[in-house]
């Protein structure tokens, strides 16, 4: 499997995401935001956490106008896979690839801690390594992770089984406890928690590793 991890100025989880992919067996290329094309033959694009462009204007807004993001939109339109973690999720909603928006946490403070995440569906390349109902310990680290969408969108996400993860205890005010959502074709995942920070025994938890393993399993040609 070939993965591309996008690097914006201000990305600070790019290395961590790349290493989680690599540990699962992927071949990873780092791609600078000023590039206008993805490397040839990329199976999945990873958009990492951090503070792209300092979170100025609106989290993810400036990054979503970067040259590389046009290529990412094209890639997903062609049915390509992508995952955005934390700031990457914010970028994906700003590009319109995923619905909704991430607002400031309800408590108005930045929160960093390990939370309990409930797997809502195993029906995706990202979550096929889990069973629906599994509870995972995965860290969050964000100031703007409060998922918002209008009622019709939320109903549709639920109806189409596109809510990937929910919080067992809602830390940030997200509607319907949503922590991660899938695109309509189930090939794009955006999530606020950081699975790449729970992918190695040295992290203190490995509940996120199954996501990267499952992706490599699905996307590696037999």
């Amino acid at each position: 499997m070939k993965a591309a991890v996008i690097v914006f100025p201000g990305s600070n989880c790019d290395r961590d995401l790349a290493e989680a992919f690599r540990a699962a067996g992927a071949d990873v290329t780092m791609v600078w935001h000023k590039d206008s094309d993805l490397p040839k033959g990329v199976d999945i694009v990873g958009i990492p956490g951090g503070f792209s462009f300092g979170d100025y204007l609106r989290c993810g807004a400036i990054a979503s106008r970067s040259p590389i993001c046009s290529a990412v939109v094209e890639h997903t339109k062609r049915g390509g896979y992508a995952m955005g973690v934390c700031n990457g999720f914010q970028v994906l909603t700003e590009t319109g690839i995923l619905p909704g928006a991430l607002l400031r946490n309800a408590g108005l403070k930045y929160i960093c801690k390990t939370v309990q995440l409930k797997v809502e569906t195993s029906n995706s390349a990202f979550t096929s390594g889990y069973n629906a109902g599994d509870v995972l310990g995965i860290p969050i680290a964000h100031h703007d992770g409060n998922y918002y969408a209008d009622a019709a969108t939320l109903d549709a996400l639920k109806g189409e089984d596109r809510v990937a993860f929910t919080y067992a205890e809602n830390p940030n005010g997200s509607q319907r406890d949503i922590a991660g959502v899938l695109s309509a074709n189930r090939r794009v995942l955006g999530m606020m928690p950081h699975p790449e920070r729970a992918a190695d025994p040295g992290h203190g938890g490995t509940d996120g590793a199954a996501m990267f393993r499952a992706l490599v399993g699905v996307l590696t040609p037999a």
């Binding site: 290395r15 960093c112 190695d200 992290h203």
Partner: peptide
């Protein structure tokens, strides 16, 4: 206090 700081970025915090 500590939960307002990113204590895990770089994924090497033991």
């Amino acid at each position: 206090v500590f939960e307002q700081y990113d204590t895990m970025v770089m994924a090497d915090s033991a």
